[in-house]
Computed example of a mutant assay.
Amino acid sequence: MAHPPCWRLLAVFILMVTEAHASGNTTRCRLVHNTTSESKVLSVLEPLTNQNFTAKTKVADEEYTYVFQVCGDADGMKDAGLVQRGKDGKQVLIGNYSLTQVVRGSDWLLLIYLGGEKYHEHCSKEPRKAMIMISCDRSKVAGPLTVVLEDRERDTECFYLFELDSSAVCPVIESRLSTGSILLIVCSSCLAVYLITGFLYQRLIVGAKGVEQFPNYCFWTEIGNLSADGCDFVCRSRGSREDPPTYRGVSTEPLEEPEERDDHLLPM
Rank of each mutant, 00 (worst) to 15 (best):
Arg30Leu: 15
Val41His: 13
Val41Pro: 05
Leu45Asn: 02
Leu48Cys: 03
Thr49Ala: 10
Phe53Trp: 07
Thr54Ser: 11
Lys58Thr: 15
Ala60Lys: 14
Glu63Asp: 00
Tyr64Leu: 08
Thr65Glu: 15
Tyr66Thr: 08
Val67Glu: 07
Phe68Pro: 04
Gln69Tyr: 09
Gly72Trp: 10
Ala74Ile: 02
Asp75Tyr: 09
Asp75Glu: 13
Asp79Val: 02
Ala80Cys: 11
Val83Gly: 11
Val83Thr: 15
Gln84Tyr: 00
Gly86Pro: 07
Asp88Asn: 15
Gln91Ile: 11
Leu93Gln: 06
Ile94Pro: 10
Gly95Trp: 00
Tyr97Leu: 00
Arg104Ile: 03
Gly105Cys: 08
Asp107Tyr: 09
Ile112Ala: 04
Tyr113Thr: 01
Leu114Val: 01
Glu117Cys: 06
Lys118Ser: 12
Tyr119Leu: 00
His122Phe: 10
Cys123Arg: 01
Lys125Gly: 02
Glu126Gly: 01
Ala130Ser: 13
Ala130Lys: 13
Ala130Asp: 13
Met131His: 01
Met133Ser: 15
Met133Trp: 07
Met133Gln: 14
Ile134Asp: 01
Ser135Met: 10
Ser135Leu: 06
Ser135Tyr: 06
Cys136Asp: 05
Ser139Pro: 05
Pro144Met: 09
Leu145Ala: 04
Leu145Gln: 10
Thr146Tyr: 12
Asp151Thr: 08
Asp151Ile: 03
Arg152Asn: 15
Glu153Trp: 03
Arg154Gln: 14
Asp155Val: 03
Thr156Leu: 04
Thr156Cys: 10
Cys158Thr: 09
Phe159Cys: 02
Phe159Gln: 14
Phe159Glu: 08
